[in-house]
Design a protein around this nucleic acid. Sequence first.
DNA 1: ATGAATTGACTTTTGAGTAACTTACCTAGA
DNA 2: TCTAGGTAAGTTACTCAAAAGTCAATTCAT
Lengths: 200, 200
Amino acid sequence: MGEVGTKGVPRAERERQILDVATDAFGRKGYAAVSIASVAAEAGISKPLVHGYFGTKDGLFAACVRRAGGQLAEAIEEVLARPGDTAAKVEQTLRAVFTVLEPRPYVWNTVFDRTLPPEGEAAEAALAVRARIADQAERGVAEALAAAGSADPLDRAALTEVWVSAVTALVNWWLRHPEQSAEQMVRRSRLLMRTLSTGS
Amino acid sequence: MGEVGTKGVPRAERERQILDVATDAFGRKGYAAVSIASVAAEAGISKPLVHGYFGTKDGLFAACVRRAGGQLAEAIEEVLARPGDTAAKVEQTLRAVFTVLEPRPYVWNTVFDRTLPPEGEAAEAALAVRARIADQAERGVAEALAAAGSADPLDRAALTEVWVSAVTALVNWWLRHPEQSAEQMVRRSRLLMRTLSTGS
DNA sequence: ATGAATTGACTTTTGAGTAACTTACCTAGA
DNA sequence: TCTAGGTAAGTTACTCAAAAGTCAATTCAT
């Protein structure tokens, strides 16, 4: 256990390991409830190494959120860039999100963590990623609303928020039913979205 | 400031004040990110008084969640007890939830806090309230799903979560646009719910 | 043999929880 | 109506544990 000295693991690989463990922990329990020591233990290394590579806890979180946000935003962007009607895009966006999230469903909650300290690098990074995702969502939402006959910017802002929140809810439900595949989640989401409108 | 001795505020009222402040803080930042000291400061009293009334931090959270859960469950129950078809109930439930959540939108986040320590009174109380609300919502949701051709209990559970989460998002949006009336919000919600299904 | 990887053993800060004291209110008896 | 004393409300000043962050020493790969 207590062996000192290098183990021959290059920094890049070790950083990836740490980010994997930390993202999972942050997403499960939230920023405040995660200790650097527990992350280090889970990764099989010592606390100072984490600090050596990522500086502060804030820095570690920021790194997690930037990587996660990059993966998510990229997948969504790819869908939006493709041609197609609104119906297709909604479904493809859902599929993209669930597919990216499938191996690490906690990524989403990391980005939308509410327990961050209001100041600092972590909060800034999270806000940036959220803004990017909200911006992407708004583009898709605008189309759908136009089809429904509304061009009201208030409608657009509200629906964007509802949409993001609905995805969050689906992801959290998924976390408690990990046996579901991404494809099952897409199919289920389609049914649920359709049902939401029956009462109206 | 540092005046010692009683200020003549009876225990019941002080407890209510503390619960108000604590529920808001827990709902905003999550269990782990809230300190007893900050709650006490915000309530204008000292830390030991909070401990004297609620024991541990776990006990304080449990008290918050029980009160919050009671308020929510009661309002929903009242709507469900009234006769009417699915469409009417959806709309009435929306109206009821908006009304209950308006003065304290963070109540929902408190009940569904993910940063709770897995063991202890707080987690138990939260689970109990979640189960109660989920059970109520599921009754309403089951009807709508039946109309859409699904009797899958997993669908029901997931939709319940999505639905309440969507409503919460609407409430949070509403707080940032207070010029909107409750009736406008109900109408807007109807449009948004309908639009959500365009893709399917 | 140089530098990157890595840790043990610190210091410091923060926050939960407690002990012991102080003050105000309220009622029973004179 | 006045006062003695019990009880409820409240604080200051601590203890203790956990967790953030630092430093200097150590080992391995090239």
